[in-house]
Design a protein around this nucleic acid. Structure first.
Lengths: 258, 258
DNA sequence: GCAAAAGTGTTTCGCTTACACCCATGG
DNA sequence: CCATGGGTGTAAGCGAAACACTTTTGC
C-alpha cells in the first residue's frame, strides 16, 4: 500500500472499516458469591448464547462514554455516573466477530449489592431499548463460576476481568466499590474473600484497613446488625484514598520455597 | 437508530467508519537516562511535530501484530518477536485526530541498549518504508524528560506508559527486558533507579533479586568489567519467572505517617 | 446460657533496612 | 596505594501472621 497524494489520509473509506464496541464485565457480590451481568443474545451470531453486555461506540462518544451508556441502558440503573468503571484491555484479533472486523474495548465495572428493583430475579428490561449492536433478549446476574461458555471471546474477557479485579484489590482501595455507601468491615472483608477465594484473618484485616489513612472513614455512632445475631458492627464509608500503601497482598497458595 | 432487518448487522458502512491505529511507547535506557523512541511527522496534521511511532491496523492483523510490525519497520530491528510488548490502554476520545475518528490502541515496549547500528545518532531510516499512517520524516531516541510536547494526545500516552512501567517493575520481572541478554546485577539495579528516579541500596537489592526464584539465572564463570575500574561483576540472564513475590516496592517519598 | 459476630491484645517470626566491611581491578 | 565498583555479613526494627481473649447481641 504505497503512499498516495495528500488526500490519502482523509479518505475515510480507503480501508475495510472497523467497528468499535465497548463491552462490560460488570461484577457484583450476590448472596456471598461473585456474579457477573450477562445478556442473552437475541440474534445471530451466537443467538441464544450468553454474552457480556455492550454495544457499538457511536461517532460522538468515547469508548468510556459508550460503556457507561450501555451499562445504564441495560441495567436500568439511574445513577451510573459515580460508579467505578475501568478500562480492562482491547481485543482486536481478526475473526472475533464473524460478521465483520470488530475491535472491542472491554471495561470492568463493580457494583454494590444491586438495589431490589434491579435485575435480580426477573430481568428489568423495561429500559433496555434496542440500539446498534445491542440485541439482548434478556439480562441476568449469573454466578461467575457458572458463566461459561459465552459468545465470541467473552470467556477470555471475563477471565481477564476477574484476574484484574483480584489484582487491583491488593494495591488499591477498589474493594469499597463492591460495598453500599455505608458498610461494615466484615462486609469489606467479605469482598476480598469472595474475589480471592480465600479466608482472611479478621483481626489482621481490621488493623490493615484502619491503618491505611483514607481507605475507610467511620460513620460516628452508626452500627448495623449483619447476620441477625452478634454484636452490631460499626459502619464506615469509602475514604478518599485510591492507592493502598502498603498493599494488602493475597495469601500465596504456595509459600515461596526457602 | 432503530433496528432494521436481518442484514442490519452486516452493513459494514452503516456507521461513520473508525480507523484503528497501534501506537508504541518504546522505552530504553541510554547513557543512564530513560529514552523514548519518537518520530518526526512528515505531513499534516502536526507536521514537524514529534510523535510516538505507530500506524494503522491492517484488516488481517490484530493491534498487537500491527504494533510489532510497526516497531520492526521503524526501528530496523531484525528480531522483534522476542521482546516484551504490552498493551497499555486504548484512547478513543472523539477529536483525537482532526482528520477522522481514530481509536488508538497503545503499547509499551522495552528495549535493552539499542545495538550500535540502531537509531542512535543518525536515524536508521533505510528500512522505514512508508505505509498507511506512517509518515515519519525521521526517528530518534529522545530523553524522556525532553520528549514533550508531542503530537495528538501522545504526551498523555507517554506519561501513562512511564507510570505503567514504573509500577510494573515493582511486582514483575520486567526490568530484565531493559537489559541485554547477559547483564550484571548492577545494570539491573540501574534500570530500577533510572525508571523510579531513586537510589537503591545495593546489598539489599542483590538479596532481593537473588532470593526471588526465577528472576535471574547466573551465567557460570562469566564476568564483565562495567566501569573500567572495580571488581568484574558476575553475569546473569533473565530467568523464567514473570511475577515478583514478594514485590520490590519503590521507596515511598513520604513515609506513611505514624 | 449459648451461639454468633465484632472488636482488642499479644506473641512470634520474617523481612526490610541501614550500614560496616572485604574483594578485585585499573590507574 | 587509592579510587571504584562488586559482593558479604549483621544487628535493629517494623510489620504481618497466628491466635487467645473480651464484648455485644439474638435466641
Amino acid at each position: 500500500m504505497a503512499e498516495m497524494d495528500g488526500t490519502y489520509a482523509y479518505d475515510k473509506y480507503a480501508h475495510e472499516p472497523f467497528a468499535v464496541t465497548a463491552d462490560l464485565a460488570v461484577l457484583t457480590i450476590l448472596d456471598g458469591v461473585l456474579h457477573v451481568l450477562l445478556v442473552e443474545r437475541g440474534q445471530e451470531p451466537f443467538k441464544g448464547h450468553w454474552a457480556l453486555p455492550g454495544g457499538f461506540v457511536q461517532p460522538d462518544e468515547s469508548a468510556e462514554t459508550a460503556a457507561r451508556r450501555e451499562l445504564a441502558e441495560e441495567t436500568g440503573l439511574s445513577d451510573v455516573s459515580g460508579l467505578h468503571l475501568e478500562q480492562l484491555r482491547t481485543y482486536s484479533e481478526p475473526g472475533r466477530d464473524p460478521r465483520m472486523r470488530v475491535v472491542t474495548v472491554a471495561f470492568t465495572a463493580l457494583l454494590p449489592h444491586p438495589p431490589p428493583d434491579s435485575l435480580r430475579g426477573d430481568p428489568h428490561l423495561a429500559s433496555l431499548e434496542p440500539h446498534g449492536g445491542s440485541d439482548a433478549a434478556q439480562a441476568r446476574w449469573v454466578p461467575y463460576d457458572k458463566a461459561g461458555p459465552l459468545a465470541f471471546d467473552h470467556d477470555r474477557i471475563l477471565a481477564d476481568a476477574q484476574e484484574r479485579v483480584g489484582a487491583k484489590l491488593e494495591y488499591t482501595c477498589l474493594a469499597t466499590a463492591f460495598c453500599p455507601p455505608e458498610f461494615t468491615l466484615g462486609e469489606l472483608q467479605h469482598v476480598y474473600e469472595v474475589v480471592w477465594g480465600t479466608a482472611l484473618d479478621r483481626p489482621n484485616f481490621r488493623r490493615k484497613v484502619l491503618a491505611t489513612p483514607g481507605f475507610v472513614a467511620p460513620v460516628p455512632g452508626a452500627a448495623r446488625l449483619t447476620g441477625g445475631r452478634g454484636k452490631p458492627a460499626a459502619l464506615y464509608r469509602a475514604g478518599t484514598a485510591t492507592a493502598l500503601h502498603p498493599p494488602l497482598l493475597r495469601p500465596t497458595p504456595e509459600g515461596h520455597p526457602a
